Simulated assay, not measured.
Amino acid sequence: MTRAPVAGRGAAEVSRAARDAAEAFRVGVERAGAVRAGAGPGEVVRVAVDMPPRCLRRGGGASARRSHLRYARRRTPGESTDATRGIGAVQWTMRFVVLTGAGISAESGVPTFRDAGGLWEGHRVEDVATPEAFERDPDTVQRFYDLRRHAVAQAEPNPAHDALARLERALGDDLLVVTQNIDDLHERAGSKRVVHMHGDLLTALCANCGARTPVTAELVERPPCPVCGRRMLRPDVVWFGEMPYELDAIDEALLACDVFAAIGTSGAVYPAAGFVMTAAEQGARTVELNLAASEITPLFDEVRHGPASFEVPAWVDEVVAARG
Rank of each mutant, 00 (worst) to 15 (best):
N290A: 04
V195T: 09
H186L: 13
V45M: 12
K192Q: 15
R222H: 11
V220C: 08
I87N: 01
E23F: 07
A155H: 06
R65F: 00
A272V: 10
D183N: 05
I104W: 05
L147H: 13
A314M: 10
G117N: 13
G264Y: 04
R148W: 06
V97M: 07
V27Q: 14
V237T: 11
A37E: 15
E30V: 07
A308D: 10
H186A: 10
R285S: 12
G101R: 09
F260A: 02
A293F: 10
A262H: 02
V110H: 00
V238T: 12
T100K: 06
A322Y: 00
L233W: 09
A284L: 05
N181V: 07
W315C: 04
R231A: 14
L247C: 05
R74V: 12
G267L: 09
E318W: 01
A72R: 05
G172I: 10
T81G: 05
L171M: 14
V98R: 09
L247V: 12
D162P: 00
T213P: 08
E187A: 13
F96H: 14
H196E: 14
R3A: 13
R36S: 12
V320P: 02
L291V: 06
G118T: 09
A89P: 00
T76F: 02
E79F: 01
D127I: 06
G229H: 05
A102F: 01
I104K: 01
A102S: 13
G86Y: 11
A129E: 04
E221V: 03
R75D: 01
D184Y: 06
V128S: 11
R58W: 10
A321K: 13
L185F: 03
V152M: 01
A12K: 14
V312L: 06
D162S: 12
V303N: 01
G28F: 01
P224C: 07
E168M: 06
D317E: 15
